[in-house]
């Protein structure tokens, strides 16, 4: 991962400086409200972008901050989605309950698998995450008595949000709900990465051998962040299940793992905002291209990715950082 941001000599001052909210961040979050007023017909898309952004944020925590490249992240997303969906089929259709349950279930799976994850790096790690993801996909397919198999889970009934706001066809509730969850999780993640724990993670990413040598328990840190990221991925899955009232094997697909990785790299890994920006660009581009040409839009998405790599290495945000002096001053 080519990105170097040297911590200042005094780590506490460095952390403090990092934790300050920049004006542009406030502008960014204010801008997320624009769809309500200017694009009310794009709210369904906006809510799915927010969910993808949450999912990418979760991947960023492990990839951008701890150097764990995962090609099986959809497994956690999917477990969250199935948990929320299954609860609703049993009559517990309250969205917040499902959201919490999705986070817990995915967090548990993340905790269990983290014991394997923390032991490996490089290609072995990528392939083990991929393998685990595929295994869980297959388990869900086999357990059709529980999951509905490839037809998808039937009878998902999601209640109104907070007991008052049903999920409407236009996606007002869906977007408001997804956006609030994204923002709350983002604030949490922001605090997390700007804590001493976050700094230790970055140390692991840059040099996994040295960190234990200076007294930071590397595998324990990795397990912790992986579990947190898993819970967030589970929340994203639960959100998708609830806002669309559908759960199918698609939530566990390899393609979903690959897409979220592409979104994150596109935006720039290791920024928190990278995943969000990447999700916005990828999803909007995909929506527009596939609207124009439903058969061949892959070409334009591919071209977009190639151009980003050629002209904006390190992702969109990575390049903005080089161009914007205010950002480098902050670090």
């Amino acid at each position: 991962m080519a990105f170097t941001r040297t911590a200042a000599a005094d780590p506490h001052r460095h952390l403090h400086a990092q934790a300050q909210w920049q004006p542009i961040e406030l502008v960014f979050w204010a801008a997320t409200l624009i769809p309500f007023f200017l694009f009310p017909k794009y709210l369904a898309l906006a809510s799915q972008i927010a969910i993808a952004a949450l999912f990418a944020l979760s991947l960023d925590l492990i990839l951008g901050y701890a150097g764990i490249v995962s090609l099986g992240h959809a497994a956690l997303f999917g477990v969250g989605a199935y948990t929320a969906g299954l609860l609703s089929t049993l009559g517990w259709g309250d969205p917040l309950l499902g959201l919490a349950a999705g986070a817990v279930a995915a967090g548990l799976l993340g905790y269990v698998t983290s014991f394997i994850i923390a032991r490996f790096r490089h290609l072995a790690l990528i392939m083990i995450t991929l393998g685990l993801g595929q295994l869980i996909h297959e388990v869900a397919n086999k357990a059709s008595w529980l999951t509905g198999g490839s037809d998808g889970l039937q009878g998902v009934r999601i209640g109104p949000l907070l007991g008052r706001f049903p999920f409407d066809l236009y996606g007002y509730t869906a977007y408001a709900y997804s956006l609030v969850v994204l923002f709350v999780v983002f604030v949490f993640a922001r605090r997390l990465v700007n804590s001493p724990f976050g700094l230790a993670l970055r140390g692991i990413r840059e040099n996994p051998v040295r960190m234990p040598a200076i007294g930071a328990p590397s595998p324990a840190h990795v397990r912790k962040i992986y579990t947190i990221a898993a819970a967030i991925a589970g929340m994203a899955g639960a959100l998708l299940a609830q806002t669309t009232s559908t759960v199918s094997l698609g939530v566990l697909d390899f393609q979903r793992s690959a897409d979220v990785l592409v979104m994150l790299i596109l935006g720039g890994a290791g920024w928190l905002y990278g995943g969000i920006v990447g999700a916005i660009i990828f999803m909007v581009a995909r929506d527009q291209f596939s609207g124009i040409n439903p058969q061949l839009w892959y070409f334009w998405i591919g071209l977009l990715l190639v151009c980003v790599v050629m002209f904006l290495p390190n992702g969109v945000l990575g390049c903005l950082q080089l161009a914007a002096p205010w950002r480098s001053k902050a670090s």
Binding site: T244, T246, L249, G250, D253, Q255, P294, W297
Partner: peptide
């Protein structure tokens, strides 16, 4: 015309 790209009930 709209493309789902495969098995994707959410899309």
């Amino acid at each position: 015309r709209r493309d789902t790209g495969g098995v994707a009930p959410d899309v």
